[in-house]
């Protein structure tokens, strides 16, 4: 699954560590999410979307549906 996390994070001027702190997860998690190695759980996906005031589908993009 692709996501806009790196772009959104940079637009807010956050480091991966800072974003991790905002989300209450580890920096490793943010790194894995950004690299597309890990798909978040639904609660975490909602948390991320809410943090950026966006819908989940605006942050995460399921390639198969394209």
């Amino acid at each position: 699954m692709k996501n806009q996390l790196p772009e959104l994070r940079k637009a807010h001027g956050w480091s991966q560590g800072a974003l991790a702190q905002e989300l209450g997860v580890s920096r490793q998690t943010v790194n894995a999410l950004e690299k597309g190695r890990y798909d978040p759980s639904l609660p975490l996906a909602f948390k991320i979307a809410r943090l950026f005031s966006l819908k989940i589908e605006d942050v995460f993009n399921d390639e198969e549906s394209d």
Binding site: K10, W14, S15, Q16, G17, A18, A20, S26, R27, Q28, N31, A32, K35
Partner: peptide
Amino acid sequence: RPSKEGEATDLQDLLMGDMSDPKQ
């Protein structure tokens, strides 16, 4: 340690634990 932009290298995750995270 992460780059100036705050992006961690993949290799940073190879070693268990992130020393920049106070919890860890």
